[in-house]
Design a protein around this nucleic acid. Structure first.
Lengths: 135, 135
DNA sequence: TGTTGACCTGGAGTCAACTCCAGACTCTAC
DNA sequence: GTAGAGTCTGGAGTTGACTCCAGGTCAACA
């Protein structure tokens, strides 16, 4: 188990940010020590790390919340699925699909930008090299 | 030439945002009509569109500004380069290199997330299909 | 057992990036 | 030539996402 300070260290978030996410309901409250200190499990830390990763792709907190909701486990769902479950799964499939589309668009945009940036870099490098060679 | 409303339509930014970017010096002021209305060229619109693209990769406005600065053309630089030019090019190479590194990290993170999301989607799809088959 | 450093809470403050507003001007179409 | 839509300016307001603070508590070690 990890203290909030250790969790912060491991995940890349600040202590304040971790508490903030808990306050707004993005993450579930962790266990507490007898004295009331937050205590994070390995899984909690993993979840926070993947949130950090998500955040870096430009996702807003509300979107992240939605994304996390998708995680509810249907692995042991009873068959046949109840109408309710079916609807939940269909709704999640839709939300996830939309999110995927957005991420893929972002992925392509990023690939383009990386390409352009590399070209620029090559151009500058070339300029400097030519200089060196001309000496 | 396009009015600010048309430019907004074409680029995906709001009118206010376009004016805001001009105000903070991210974009250069466009031409004006005799009456004082902003008038955007094809190139202006293209630039704004690529800003919109940059923004979606999570770049902040200050970073975007720096990124745009990189564009100053050295294509016709005199040889040998002056010490000043050389320094400018070296500095830009460094900034661009750092930006590239960040973008590549983001690219990898995004690829991971896309993979994970696809897995989840497959899982749900499977659940729904199994249901259909069991009928 | 006392001190020191990490942690607690609720709430206020900050910062980037817009977004909205009022009141005046411009442009286009009838 | 006038009605209505679009645009102008400077400045105030909003939103999301933290970040900081005061005043107190907890935990580990000398």
């Amino acid at each position: 188990m990890y203290s909030i300070g250790q969790a912060a260290e491991l995940t890349g978030f600040s202590i304040d940010t971790i508490r903030y996410y808990e306050k707004i309901g993005l993450t579930k409250p962790p266990e507490r020590s007898a004295g009331g200190m937050r205590s994070y499990s390995e899984d909690d830390v993993k979840l926070l790390s993947s949130l950090h990763c998500l955040k870096r792709t430009g996702l807003g907190l509300e979107e992240m919340k939605a994304f996390l909701q998708e995680g509810r486990c249907f692995a042991n769902a009873a068959f046949p699925l109840s109408g309710e479950d079916r609807e939940a799964i269909e709704s999640r499939t839709r939300i996830l699909g939309e999110h995927l589309t957005r991420m893929e668009a972002q992925y392509r945009a990023l690939a383009d930008l990386i390409g352009q940036t590399k070209e620029k870099l090559d151009f500058y490098q070339d300029l400097l090299n030519r200089e060196g060679a001309a000496k």
